[in-house]
Nucleic acid binder design. Sequence first.
DNA 1: ATTTGGATCGGT
DNA 2: CCGATCCAAATT
Length: 205
Amino acid sequence: MPTSRRKLPRSFYARETLTVARELLGLHLVHKSIHGRQVGRIVEVEAYQGPQDLAAHSARGRTQRTEVMFGAPGHAYVYLIYGVWDCLNVVTAAHGTPHAVLVRALEPVEGIENTTHGPGLLCRALHVNRSLNGTDLTGNSLWIEMPAPAAYRQPKVQRATRIGVDYAGAWAKKPWRFFDGNSPYVSTVSTAARRRALQGSPVTG
DNA sequence: ATTTGGATCGGT
DNA sequence: CCGATCCAAATT
């Protein structure tokens, strides 16, 4: 099946955010740029469900930075964190519902030369930066697609709390991080979480 | 106009 | 644990 048939349509993103987050595991993120075609298998994501979710950037209302989160699903939300790293999200749910899923780790599939086991690292490796903020993920630059059948591996879906959101009170306890427990490419903290899970202290919720 | 602190990462 | 590094957003 040609690549275009495997590209996720907007209807994929226009659904309940936790469902989208879970189903993104195992799919391929593709970026075509002057650096060529780069592909990574998504192995870790986090759901952000503003404005109620105090961990979400959109919890503080519509601002210049979060404008894209309030727009149509199936677009990229890219922001700079700690003055150093870009982070890539996909906007989900209905237009006007400011939800997004943060892509936290990839397994290299094609054209990737640097490490991708963290949200900042994967953006650096795939040359994703704020110039791509607002990019339509149904277009021909940046998108997510089903792998070819021969390349697809079923993820072992595991859940845990989100990273770096301790300021968000009760929302910090939501198990809205999803990762492939079979993948050695999850971010460092998820590796620790997986170890805990395997030892029998699963996160609940 | 100034301050604050962050959806990270790598080194110690 | 801690510093890097800069910008969006809140505050004055």
